[in-house]
Nucleic acid binder design. Sequence first.
DNA 1: TAGATTGTTAATCGATTAACAATC
DNA 2: TAGATTGTTAATCGATTAACAATC
Lengths: 239, 239
Amino acid sequence: MNTNPEPLNKEEFRPPTLSEATLLRMSRYLNVLEEFAEKEIPHISTRKLADLLGVNPAVVKQDFLPLQVKGQTGVGYEVPVLMQAIRDVFLSRGTLSFAIIGFGNIGQALANYVSFEKQGFEMKAIFDVNPRFHQYQVRGVPVEDMEHMEEIMKERQIDIGLICTPAHTAQDVADRLVAAGVKGIWNFAPTELMVPENIILVHEHLTRGLLALSYHIGQRHTFKDESPKPETQNVWSRH
Amino acid sequence: MNTNPEPLNKEEFRPPTLSEATLLRMSRYLNVLEEFAEKEIPHISTRKLADLLGVNPAVVKQDFLPLQVKGQTGVGYEVPVLMQAIRDVFLSRGTLSFAIIGFGNIGQALANYVSFEKQGFEMKAIFDVNPRFHQYQVRGVPVEDMEHMEEIMKERQIDIGLICTPAHTAQDVADRLVAAGVKGIWNFAPTELMVPENIILVHEHLTRGLLALSYHIGQRHTFKDESPKPETQNVWSRH
DNA sequence: TAGATTGTTAATCGATTAACAATC
DNA sequence: TAGATTGTTAATCGATTAACAATC
């Protein structure tokens, strides 16, 4: 991408460029660190983290390389310090606000999903075309009609839109979210979307899980079974 | 991986080994193909598919390499044929049944998520510890107490368990699912799990999306802006 | 034919893994 | 000290991309 080796001479903090694989692991590290913090376990090593996620310890070390954090040789990392360092990478710009579009099954589940708040994200609006939902509210946020969505979202300066509508209206909603000035879109509808270059688009591929499961089960029960299967001795591990 | 070039002499169909990245794209191809089938568009090319997903056409060609399907030079693939070929990779062993454990927000959303049925998966049970849910049912499937979960699941020969409980009980549920004889687990709780080698475990990392969004928005609005945006002219003086 | 696309091989790129000196 | 772990460099591996002959 960047071929000419320009010297890095600005030393102010800048979040490093992370691959999608690293980003995924980072969110998993954060889950683990939150558990450890709750249990007041003071330290954690790359080895431990790797064991928990089922990855090679070297990958954890590589992930931490660009972080603004120092571990203690022979001991590991301080849980709160490491946790903060990872959060800083993600939330360097402060907290973000979001709106949910579509108050169907998934929309309702996400509106009630408190983990988002715990991570510092604020739900500022919920929209649905169906009038029967307009009487509802979730933790103080009412379900509103979609007619004035753009104005409402601009007014409340909402950063992210969560598309929870059926697939055939998702592109339409995406266009309106762009018009409403969002910086990013999180798409839960099982369809591909077109958005301008400057909009961050994250797709939640819910059927991927089902298909991956089906594929791997098919693989295992067709071919792995050929060899051992004395109840496989239950070797517990992460994978 | 396989260095010695052993001749492929069994020509019965065997699903090829697919990477996680390929598996994810496969599920996206399927989404697109279903849309095209609905609109009765007869053909699709790797170029078109690549454009829709935002990937390089070469990656699509590579993904299709192990598929049991032939495209027409100069035309592309027949939509129904390609769709079936992809489904065959995933569902080679027939349909799978699943149970939902935990009838909270996410559990309810998944129980009502009809796409699973459309893909040929059958919901055979729903469990929750809370008695107030035991009066409910979703499309004929009642919410049952967790006490006899293992027996019920064995009896109904359920293949997959969807963990939709809070994080702190997820490992416990996983252990019981293993005891109940599932082949795979789909974990929606934000925690890492230990399961035996022979159990397929798929993790749905719901906070990943939020963090990825936050990270990319931070990146873009901090550094991409450096070029245009007149306020950020910022001539950096070295010292 | 001209234009488009498949299907494959080889080249490139990036991510994972191994290895180990430094250090608590 | 002995044992454990960090932090980094180099090697390996696998996935993506490029290129192009074959073909409709």
